[in-house]
């Protein structure tokens, strides 16, 4: 029933993806650091030029001495970003292939346990980012996406690894496939949303202090980041609503009731309500974008809790973690 060769191949691909992602993270970080300092030195040069005229009275002709930075040459910083992006594409391919092989090895959707769930969510996050990066310049976002995905994959491989095998009967249902596919897709989106939200909060604070320096200069303006954060969430929220509903349909068929406040159901609901609160907060006069964004971050914290603490420590009907 299960094919060990395919399962082993899947495992190699995932290890490979983890290594490639670590390299991508490095490249993206270099990109941010170099772009940031590049922009900063250009900005400083302007300031100096401006200041030069003013300070001429002191007899220090500051401006002309400033060496010309290699502005017109292809910026080295961008090259690192592109390398990071290409590595990410490679890793995306490896994760998708690893997930597919895993599915083939057990002849079913790879959604039966926490390990497979983490694979799917990572694959979705990477695919979404990769597609996005093809259409827009998203080099600056790379590090923010690769880091959480790397953590998810690493944790999955190290602690949640589950041998490829068949499903328990309660999990063998078309609604499971739908429910968990959409759940992983929304988790992938929420991950990117949380990455953007974090980027926004950091950048916004720097902007508020008037102190946008270093790698922060490589990020888009705070307002644009905030808009992107919202844009991701309005995709993810209906998907999560659907996750909640399809989960209820599945629960009805498997356990005879569509809602029973099982810990997993409770947390799905909590996550849903927190993200609804985020969307409300954003539309509420008197709530700043910053404060609203913190609610979105709280939503992601709930997702993380749900897949770690609730899966592993709290007993419930959803005992599918597959972790001994």
């Amino acid at each position: 029933m299960t094919d060990p060769t395919l399962a082993a191949a899947s495992d190699y691909l995932i290890w490979g993806a983890i290594i490639v992602l670590a390299l991508a993270l490095l490249a993206f970080s270099l990109h941010l650091a170099l772009t940031g300092s590049g922009r900063q030195s250009r900005a400083e040069r302007k300031v100096l030029v401006g200041a030069g005229a003013g300070t001429s009275a002191t007899g220090e002709p500051a401006a002309p001495e400033v060496p010309e930075p290699a502005e017109e040459a292809p910026a080295p910083s961008r090259r690192w970003g592109v390398i990071g992006l290409q590595l990410t594409w490679l890793a995306t391919f490896a994760v998708v292939a690893g997930t597919v092989l895993r599915a083939l090895s057990v002849s079913r959707a790879p959604l039966g346990n926490m390990y497979e769930f983490a694979l799917m969510a990572s694959a979705f996050a990477l695919v979404i980012y990769s597609i996005w990066s093809l259409r827009r310049d998203r080099l600056w976002l790379g590090a923010f996406v690769v880091l959480p995905v790397l953590i998810i994959l690493g944790a999955a491989r190290l602690w949640w690894y589950t041998e490829a095998s068949q499903l328990m009967p309660a999990l063998d249902n078309i609604w499971l496939v739908i429910h968990v596919t959409v759940a992983t897709l929304s988790v992938g989106l929420f991950t990117i949303g949380a990455a953007l939200a974090t980027a926004y909060l950091i950048k916004d604070r720097a902007e508020a202090r008037g102190d946008v320096r270093g790698w922060l200069a490589a990020l888009p303006a705070g307002q644009a980041l905030e808009r992107m954060t919202y844009g991701i969430h309005i995709f993810a929220f209906p998907l999560w609503t659907f996750t909640l509903m399809s989960g209820a349909i599945w629960a009805e068929q498997a356990w005879g009731r569509y809602w029973g406040w099982d810990p997993k159901e409770t947390w799905t609901f909590v996550i849903w309500v927190v993200y609804a609160a985020y969307l409300h907060a954003r539309a509420t006069t008197g709530w700043s974008a910053r404060r609203s964004t913190w609610v979105a971050i709280a939503g992601f914290a709930c997702i993380v809790l749900n897949y770690t603490v609730v899966n592993l420590l709290i007993t419930g009907l959803h005992s599918y973690s597959g972790v001994a």
């Binding site: 406040w261 810990p263 409770t266 947390w267 609901f269 909590v270 309500v273 927190v274 609804a276 609160a277 409300h280 907060a281 509420t284 709530w287 609610v295 709930c302 609730v310 709290i314 419930g316």
Partner: peptide, 16 residues
Amino acid sequence: ALALLLLLAVAAIPGS
């Protein structure tokens, strides 16, 4: 409404 939503989320947690 926002406060009640956040409160609802927090209040649901002990049950898990």
